[in-house]
Amino acid sequence: MSTPRLGERLQAIRKRRGLTQRELAQLSGVSISLLRKLEQGEREDTRVETLRKLAMALRITTAELILRPEPEDEAPVDGDQWAPVRDALLGRRMPEPDEEPTIGGVKSALRAGVPLSTENRYADLGAAIPSLLRDADALGPDGRLVQARAYHLAGLLMVQTRQFDAADMALARAVDSAPDRLEAAAAINTRCWLLIRQGRLRETLDLAATWADDIEPKLSRATLAELATWGGLLVRVSAAAVRNNQPGEADDALRLAYAAGAAMGREYASPSDYARTFGPLKVAMMRAENAMVADRPDRVLAIAERIPERVFRPQSPSRKRHRLDVANAHVSLKRYTDAVDVLQELRSSAPEWIVNQRLARDILAKVISRRRTLTSEMRDLADFVSLEY
């Protein structure tokens, strides 16, 4: 069965809410003429901010109105669900709605899209990104901050889903659009993560260290955003250095990151770096990650025991990555059941995230290779993450 079109979905939800078109127009601030065109199928596309106004009036999420095709409706011949995002990044033409976007409206739409990333709802975010980029670009020079953050959000999605070329395009646009160095540095932080995932360690070291040196603040009067951005780049330096067999450089970077975290005194989520928090606990989790790279699983688990779980949401990228290190440590210590329990926990809390994590497959592959017999739970998990065994 094909997916109901925008007008059909809008009309059905409006009627379930017991609203007339005129009442919905008044509640949402959307003109009744546009509402009629949408419901009658004369218009199949509109600005994201318009959809958000309608969604708020209807008490639903914007994602429920954004078209998300079923497999048989997908436009790309090869069934590639990320093709529309890549097309948007390449500037391929999309229908231009009649209404003009506003900076405030696109900002609101952007804020509504951020939870789709932090909650690992990648398919929903992928459906929203093309229109969001189109509307952000239409703002012109006055909308540089919104443009930078929209492209940064697209870059995060593409890194998470291993669409690395598209991620590179999106993050380059985020840096180019950034109105200041701090905003650009947030996108550079994500680009460093992209380079690490590609194994480009020397490039990561050079890029992260250069930008960390450039924006290094004075600790005594730095803002939380400055400390978090600087500390985040130092964490990237440490992650790349320990993987590049440069433990001294990794430790030096982490000591500076610890100083930034201590000056902050708490975890801080930067509005320009959606997927990440930074603070003392982030540094502790990086120590655990470095310990795992150095083959010190006992140290990983000792550090993990001192990190309070209640501080981070289950969907937090930092926490999820840390839990993979914990699972990996359990495997190294031959605690296979404990490792599988952690992977199942991640599957339950972040199913779209774990299927895109090569480390999760590698950990499970180790478990399977070291077990004479597999439980049904292990087989089911292997099938879920597409691991051949």
Rank of each mutant, 00 (worst) to 15 (best):
V293C: 03
E267V: 14
M264W: 02
D137T: 01
D168G: 06
Q163W: 10
G232I: 02
V85E: 00
A257S: 14
P95I: 02
H152A: 14
R323D: 09
A288S: 14
F278P: 02
P280F: 01
P76C: 08
Q11Y: 13
S31E: 12
L207A: 10
M378W: 11
I60Y: 04
Q11W: 08
V85N: 03
E309Y: 09
L35W: 01
D98F: 07
A55W: 05
A302F: 07
L171T: 00
P247Y: 07
L90D: 11
P101R: 00
E345F: 11
V106Q: 01
D124P: 06
A12L: 11
A25T: 11
L27K: 15
L51A: 13
A178R: 02
R173V: 06
E289H: 15
K366L: 10
L51W: 01
L387S: 04
G232P: 02
D206R: 14
N356L: 04
L27H: 13
R59P: 01
A257I: 11
N245C: 15
D98R: 12
S369L: 12
E70I: 03
W193D: 09
L195F: 06
A12M: 10
A57S: 11
M286I: 12
A382Q: 06
V340W: 03
E377L: 09
N120G: 07
A350S: 15
S131A: 12
R17N: 11
A284N: 09
V235A: 11
H322Y: 08
Y336P: 03
L364V: 05
R52C: 00
D380R: 15
H152I: 03
